[in-house]
């Protein structure tokens, strides 16, 4: 119920990562379904890892969730920096390999060129959004830390994931959008802008933590 209720917030928080990633994929419902499935699977893995971590910390320090797991923490800063990197590599499609290919063939890297579909992209982005700290996620984390058994914490997070995952299915509609070079280019530009945003936000948090504790 918590997942279902807080779904719109999860949607808004993960939307900036999912939308450009889906838009750089080739048109078609099947491919989009596969990418979304991989993304959600990796996100679930991130949830479960987080559930283990908060339960272990919660059992070691009862009735208190350390600051390391709350908003504007080291973890949040690091995750956002990693998200920025993943967006540049996967959604924007900038990789060293593409540059090498372009150099050897003597061609410029074409911005609107359709990218190579990579499973690792959906997995990396899914896992990183899975451990990214957003308000509903923190609420779930507090609850999981207070549970008596690890299995209960994992089950709680699995149910929370299932509730929020329902809200991600509308993203499949992006599969119907016609893929023109313009749309792919815009999606890549968005990915670069978002990478700048996450990078700036993450580095700000890390600097704040370093100098102000």
């Amino acid at each position: 119920m918590l997942g279902l209720a807080t779904g719109p917030v999860c949607l808004a928080t993960c939307g900036p990562v999912v939308v450009p990633w889906m838009l750089v994929q080739p048109q078609g419902l099947r491919g989009h379904s596969r990418q979304l499935f991989l993304f959600l699977a990796a996100r679930l893995a991130g949830y479960l890892v987080f559930a283990c971590a908060v339960w272990l910390v919660g059992s070691a320090i009862p009735h208190a969730l350390p600051q390391a797991w709350t908003g504007r923490s080291w973890l949040m800063g690091a995750v956002q920096v990693l998200l920025a990197g993943a967006l540049v590599v996967y959604a924007a499609g900038w990789s060293h390999r593409r540059c090498v290919v372009a150099k050897t063939t003597g061609n410029l890297v074409q911005i609107g060129e359709a990218p190579v579909v990579k499973r690792s992209g959906a997995l990396a982005l899914g896992f990183l959004t899975g451990i990214n700290l957003c308000p509903p996620f923190l609420v779930a984390g507090v609850r999981a830390a207070q549970l008596a058994h690890l299995s209960a914490a994992l089950w709680f997070f699995f149910c929370f994931f299932a509730g929020t995952a329902v809200w991600f299915f509308p993203f499949l509609s992006l599969g119907f959008l016609k893929r023109t070079p313009a749309i792919v280019t815009v999606a890549r530009m968005v990915a670069v802008l978002l990478a700048c945003w996450y990078g700036f936000s993450g580095i700000s948090i890390l600097i704040e933590r370093t100098f102000h504790g």
Binding site: A12, V186, V190, L193, L194
Partner: peptide, 9 residues
Amino acid sequence: VFVVLVSAA
């Protein structure tokens, strides 16, 4: 697209 997505987030 960036402004709309991040503003909502």
